[in-house]
Design a protein around this nucleic acid. Structure first.
Lengths: 189, 189
DNA sequence: TTCTCTTGACTAACGGTACTAGTTTGAAGA
DNA sequence: TCTTCAAACTAGTACCGTTAGTCAAGAGAA
């Protein structure tokens, strides 16, 4: 009965590692316990439930994504900012598929704390739109379009939804160009 | 031990009903058996596994979506066709959230038969693009953009991802307008 | 009508999941 | 050194999908 010296952070870190390498779906209490060298019930001295671990994982993933995106967007505007946002998200999803998958779960299952972090992300999208001169109601609608397009593309790419051999990078550039031209149109009207 | 008169079709039909009313995630052998008035193991006289039921459900969902979309797109071109495609998908997802969720699962988990049906869907998107004068490689890239945008929007809407009170219908129209203007741009170049 | 054979139900069980209760022990602080 | 709390443990609950083996319903043949 040697003590493993665990705490919630270590457990969540292990969960992130498992989710990113084997997929969020195969994250389980049993696997977590095995990785940490402990029997499954012992984990409950540090965590409330597997769902809570996933919530923590999601929130940490969002915070990391926010940092990365903010850095990428620093000092650029409009189209450059949109591209920075898009590439930052796509790269994040490829580097951390488990964290990305966590952030794509239905909002209803998140804790208040995690929902709060999610709202900060919207702020970043709205910042991009200010660069296009789009504010207020129109910004909300355009923000939804940007979020939806990026999320849909990344989910499809990660899920193996692009079967044809054409270069997916070119497709992503097409997506960003489309969004840019749509937003510039919107500004003119 | 009265015989229930089951067959695979009846089981899949019940699965669709459960998935659409309670969500794909809560579709289980136990629930399926309860609904059909039979003990769980009895189902295995008619099905191979729960995964195979989900695959059938997905394929049937896709076929239904294809029918609905084809009908909506009949006799219209370019922007009208794009709008028909978009609204048909969004309405389908709202009417059949379980079938929609099935069709969004990672491609790797599908049978060959189901993947084949999925490919037919791409044909519909390419038909829309022909109306814009976009063919070949460019069409593949634009088709990915359309699929990604629609999928992302619908997934976000169904998952409760749009927190602000602004009218989601307006946002969807914005998405379609964006796509349309992007595609018309692309045609000119 | 009776017999046979197939089909579709059943019960019991296996290994997996998350989780809880109760027990023991390591290790830190008094 | 003793006490106390935290963190591990074992054992067990209640689910999940799935398999093996059993038995009877019901259809077709004699």
């Amino acid at each position: 009965m040697v003590r493993a010296g665990l705490d919630k952070e270590i457990v969540v870190r292990a969960a992130i590692s498992i989710a990113d390498s084997e997929g969020l779906a195969s994250l389980s209490i049993a696997k977590l316990a095995a990785v940490l060298g402990v029997k499954a019930p012992s984990l409950y001295n540090h965590i409330l439930s597997l769902d809570m671990v996933k919530d923590d994982l999601t929130r940490q993933g969002m915070l990391l994504l926010l940092d990365i995106t903010r850095d990428a967007m620093a000092g650029v505007e409009a189209r450059k900012a949109l591209e920075a946002l898009g590439h930052a998200q796509r790269n994040f999803a490829r580097d951390h598929p488990g964290l990305w998958a966590g952030a794509q779960m239905p909002v209803a299952g998140w804790s208040k704390a995690t929902q709060k972090v999610a709202n900060v992300y919207i702020g970043l999208v709205l910042a991009v739109l200010r660069g296009y001169g789009i504010t207020d109601d129109a910004a909300i609608h355009s923000a939804r379009v940007i979020r939806a397009s990026l999320k849909g593309f990344i989910d499809l790419e990660l899920g193996g939804g692009f079967g044809y051999p054409e270069d997916v990078d070119v497709s992503f550039d097409t997506l960003l160009k489309n969004l840019d031209s749509g937003l510039r149109m919107r500004k003119k009207i």
